[in-house]
Every structure is written in C-alpha cells, then in structure tokens.
Design a protein around this nucleic acid. Structure first.
Length: 417
DNA sequence: TCTGGGGTCCTAGGACCC
DNA sequence: TCTGGGGTCCTAGGACCC
C-alpha cells in the first residue's frame, strides 16, 4: 500500500466559536472571538471552570480548566458564556455533513474534531492541500466558524499539524518535515504526553519531542512500560491506525457523573442522586439497544479524594430499578460517611439486547422493564421532566442528571446551519 | 485550586484453577 | 506446606484525550 493522505479537522476554540456565531446570528453585535471571553459553568453550583477560551483571553494567560474565579482575577472584564451542548451537537453535525462530501471515510474523534482519509479522493478532487483550503473556506462561509486542517500520512501527524498556528489555517506535517516542524516542540505538546509523563520524561533530561525521538527506547520502559514505546513511536511519527467510520458504534461503556451544588452527607440523598444518574444512563442504554453486565459507582469527597467500586453481574440488564439497586449496594459498601461533592454511575461490558437471557435466579424484572419502556416513551414525547419520581419533589435535586439534553429549552439555529 | 463531564486504555495485585 | 508456575478473571486506581 502506498502513502495514505489523512486530514485532521479541528474547530478553533470550538464551544466559544459556536456560541459567538450563534449570538451574531441572533442579532448580538459582539463577536466573542474578538474579545477576552470564555465558555464556562456556574460557580454558584460549583461548576465554575473554563471550558474554552477566546484567543484574546489566551493573551491574558487564561487557561482551559482553570477556575472562573482565577480567570476573572487575570481579567475582570472577562465575558463568560454558559455552555449550550445542544448547539454544539448541531454545529458538530453540520461540520460532519460538509466533510462527508469530500470522503466517505471520515471519523468523528470528538465533538469538534474529525479525521478524513483523502487517499482515494485525490483523483476526484486533485491536490490535497488545495482541497483542504477549499474545505476550510467553505466551512467558514457556510457555517460561520473557522477550523484548522492538518495534513499528513497518518492520524497522529495530521493531528499534530492541526495544532500549529491558529486560527483558520491549513498545515502539513509530512514525514520529511518532522525534524523541522515537530522535533523542536516541547515534549508536552506531543499527543498523549500529559502532566505525569512530562514529569517523568523531564526527569530523564528529555525536553523536546526530538529528544524523545532520539533517545534509546529502552530508557523509557522501566517507568513508562508499553506507554513508553507508544510515545517514542509518536515522537518519531510512527502510527498507522485506520480511520474508523461510524464513530460510536463500538461504544465500550457509558456513564454519567455530576458535581452537586452542595455536599451530600446523608445516605438517602446520596441514593437519590444515584437514581437521577441511573435514570439517564439506563435510558441511554435502552435507546442504544444495549445491556450491561458491569455496574460501577464513584464519588469524590469534599477533600477531593476519589473512590470507585464496581460489580460484575452474572446476567445483563438495562433496567433502571435493578441498576439503581446495585448502585446503592455498591455505594453503601464503599461510603464511610464523608461529605460528597461529586458522584458518578457507569455501565460497561455492553452487549446488544436482542438475545437477552432472563435469569431464573434473579428477581424477575419483566414488569419493571415494561415500566421503563412506558416511561421512555412518555419522556420522548413530552420531555424528560414529564414524569419524575415524587421523591425528588422537595429534594433540591434534579430528577435526571447528565446525558439527555432538553431540546425544547433551546431555539434551533438559524437557516445558516 | 474557589479544581467539569464524557470517554478509553493500561497496570498491579489478589483470587482461583489446573 | 516452609509448596511452583501459568493462565484467567476481577477490581481499583491512574494515565491520557477532548
């Protein structure tokens, strides 16, 4: 097989750009991309971190993941927009629809990133770099936001290329360009090298991606194990995974978690939070026609210590009440009374629900499954708040947490999208 | 740190079996 | 048992990504 040609398409400051375009289309004259601004949560409910920053905000050293409090201390006039996940999904899909016109082989890598395999499309569209410019400009004209496109012979190099100068740029990083364009970069800019790995590499005198590429890989194995081989390969531009079209068909697990607006310190309230998480997780399971046989819960205390506990089941389930019962058992086994700030539920070991075996030894959940189906159907017609359990009425908690987004809360995008 | 929420993969150690 | 080695499964935690 000859050289592949891979594009990586990355939306510049995605959440913020999308919010900026939305506001412009709705008559707001201020372009958030041109002023110091961020998309972030609400500090009064303890969701106060920066999710995305504008390029002018970056000039004030405001960083993704830092608290809004800290960001405001760097620039008090900072404009803060609330996240709007339905909008993001629509923008992401609109982007995918344009990319599909340029290759049938596209992979959505995250809400704001796609890979596109251009190898077979050269004959149809001609020069890859010129085509990338056309794609980039089309997205800007038709959707109103800018992207970076990175071009190379594999996904890793294409992704590294799209990280070069932003915004609204096309970059190449072909293998022969690695020494000049990638090796001078600091080690933490390599994909998959995070904080912990940076620390380990630095302690061995490895400062740049080039240092890593040129070191003896055996130097890395004791502390980094097989991960050392992976990042060494990446530093040398070695990577050959295929574009996986279809995206989320092979989903391995699904979970919901939430930081509560107040510390939870009684068992009953904790169980109620678990139920609200299980409601959305199990609804997603059923919507995907999946069942799970591994249930896990997790929590974080007010001292920021994290714990998790899981159980493998002898059968599979998608039943709200059954998953909730197990989640509560797991919680009770793990919790020692600490005040909790964050809780999560996750299901994995998924399988399709078409050959489900009803266990003779477990409680009979047939009736409960019928109830789940009825509730799902009512919620899909009338919204997720149309049926809630009475236990939530005076609890100060939401009846469904995470995952499901209330479509009716948001107006549709204008005709441009 | 006044520190989100959705994922994936890897590893170490223990249980259990032959 | 003062016991060997290999394989598999399970669990908790940690690393990374966006």
């Amino acid at each position: 097989m000859g050289q592949r040609i891979i594009f990586h398409i990355d939306v510049n400051s995605a959440y913020l750009s999308w919010e900026a375009v939305y506001r412009l289309q709705h008559g707001n004259p201020v372009d958030l991309r041109e002023i110091p601004s961020v998309v972030g949560g609400d500090p009064t409910t303890r969701h106060g971190i920066v999710l995305t920053k504008s390029i002018p905000a970056k000039k004030f050293k405001i960083q993704t993941g830092e608290t809004l409090y800290s960001a405001l201390s760097k620039y008090p006039e900072l404009v803060i927009a609330k996240p709007n996940y339905l909008l993001y999904r629509q923008c992401s899909q609109a982007l995918g629809n344009i990319l599909k016109e340029y290759s049938p082989l596209i992979q959505q890598f995250s809400i704001d990133e796609y890979f596109l395999d251009f190898t077979q499309m050269k004959n149809l569209f001609g020069d890859p770099v010129k085509t990338a410019y056309r794609i980039k400009n089309r997205i800007k004209e038709e959707l109103g936001f800018t992207v970076n496109i990175g071009i190379s012979t594999n996904k890793l190099l294409a992704k590294m290329a799209s990280e070069f100068e932003k915004p609204d740029k096309v970059h190449t990083l072909f293998p022969q360009e690695i020494p000049t364009k990638m090796w001078p970069l600091p080690i933490e800019e390599l994909f998959m090298v995070g904080r912990a790995t940076t620390r380990k590499l630095r302690s061995r005198g490895i400062q740049t991606i080039g240092d890593l590429a040129h070191c003896d890989v055996r130097l890395l194995l004791p502390s980094l194990k097989s991960f050392g081989r992976l990042v060494w390969n990446y530093a040398n531009g070695i990577e050959n995974s295929p574009i996986k079209p279809g995206g989320r068909i092979n989903i391995k697990g699904m979970g919901n978690s939430t930081t509560m607006s107040f510390d939870v310190d009684d068992r009953q309230k904790a169980h109620l939070v678990l139920l609200s998480l299980v409601e959305t997780v199990s609804a997603r399971l059923r919507q995907d026609h999946s069942q799970s046989c591994l249930i896990a819960i997790s929590f974080r205390t007010n001292e920021f210590l994290s714990y998790s506990h899981q159980r493998k089941l002898s059968h599979t389930t998608d039943c709200t009440n059954e998953i909730w019962e197990i989640a509560c058992q797991l919680f009770d086994e793990l919790w020692q009374g600490q005040p909790l700030r964050h809780m999560g539920v996750r299901v994995s070991d998924l399988c399709q629900d078409d050959f489900v075996q009803l266990s003779l030894f477990e409680k009979d959940y047939t009736k409960l499954r019928k109830l789940d189906q009825a509730v799902d159907s009512i919620r899909s017609r009338f919204g997720s708040q149309s049926i809630i359990r009475s236990s939530y009425l005076h609890s100060g908690l939401h009846s469904m947490t995470g995952g499901v987004i209330e479509e009716e809360d948001y107006p549709m995008m204008s005709s441009i999208l």
